[in-house]
Design a protein around this nucleic acid. Sequence first.
DNA 1: TTAAAACTAAGGGATTTACGTAGGAAGGGT
DNA 2: ACCCTTCCTACGTAAATCCCTTAGTTTTAA
Lengths: 222, 222
Amino acid sequence: MNRKIRVLLVDDHQIIRDGLSNMMLEAGDIEVCGCAADAATALEMAGKTNPDVVITDLSMPGRSGIDLIRKMAEKFPAIRVLVLSMYVSEDYIFNALKAGAKGYLPKQDTTKTELLKAVRTVAGGDEYFSDTAAQVISKLYSHNVRSAGNPESAARKANLTSRETEILRLYTEGLSNLEIADRLNISIRTVETHKNNIMQKYNFKSTVEMVKFAIRNKLGEA
Amino acid sequence: MNRKIRVLLVDDHQIIRDGLSNMMLEAGDIEVCGCAADAATALEMAGKTNPDVVITDLSMPGRSGIDLIRKMAEKFPAIRVLVLSMYVSEDYIFNALKAGAKGYLPKQDTTKTELLKAVRTVAGGDEYFSDTAAQVISKLYSHNVRSAGNPESAARKANLTSRETEILRLYTEGLSNLEIADRLNISIRTVETHKNNIMQKYNFKSTVEMVKFAIRNKLGEA
DNA sequence: TTAAAACTAAGGGATTTACGTAGGAAGGGT
DNA sequence: ACCCTTCCTACGTAAATCCCTTAGTTTTAA
């Protein structure tokens, strides 16, 4: 009944893309909306194909996968990035997390079942980490390495100006453009402009998407 | 900086309304948008004055306070009801909770400080219960008395038809009227009408409010 | 001090929503 | 059979928002 989960696959090996693609198709509730072999293509595809989840490797030609995650989180905050990597070192996991990844799976020991479960989990808005990744993360937590603020919210809030943030919050209260304008004693045109800028910065496709983002990032009331 | 919390006071004793009103005014961040001495007036005022929180007694002339809570939750799900009652029996607390109350304070031993804290808490979307009320509630929980479904969601979902629920879910996905119409192969006019009906049933004042409601009630994604 | 970023505002047509009204089908009850 | 209610469907007009562009003013950072 529900809409299928749209997945964008990013990996520089064709055979892996095909293998993953196949798995997704078999799952039934998942749909592969695109594949990319490098970060630039991935970002382009993300804008065009509107995926729910991006599954990406970290080692790719050109810019690093971490960079891709960061850009993805900035430009398309509604998309959840799931890392499927051969690396299991603290460094990679930590950086992926900091860049905004919503899940981390090592290629070494991730089963098809687990991958599908992870896709569904992150698509549902939660995070998913393999046992090994989770261990690393908890170690990082206990060492307070992430103390300098939540990586995700930092990455996601960074681009908004204070005025934009304020206006976004008013949208989450359910106010109309005119009501916001009156509240702030500015022209409705200005409000529209600010909103437009917010929508563009994050590639939101609708007001609802924008509001959901704000709520997730605690900018407004739940 | 933030907008004041709007409170509607419901109690059949003038002196109590005045006393409470005074307390709210002193608080600075709270605003009394209206008072009512009975359930009917309270409901009318709720529709007109758009409060964030309703503070109500349970014993009132005419219909019971429990009934008021239920109606309030149905017609204005965005409004949080805080019960301030002389009763501390299981029965009253349980029924108030089942009807959709977001907080419960006994008149006997609630201080001004605690009342203000409770108002701010429920206004912020959380629940607030006095220690005595909380004890009763936990007892009820442990006895599994509330096992027959979450009272709030039951009360709040009841009025929507299946078609309306379906459409509401699509709104939470960020789809426009036209997109929903295409998805369901019906006219955009029909979608608009359904949405209108949803908005009227719950007295939503904006699409955003509707979507937030749906998310809170797990009708759509977070 | 100069360039960049942020805030403000507007034009103006295209698109989307809001809102009151209304017909037809299905189901229940008498 | 008949009425009554609920639900799903749909339209017309008025209002609001979207979208893309341009641009003046202020604030901030280099």
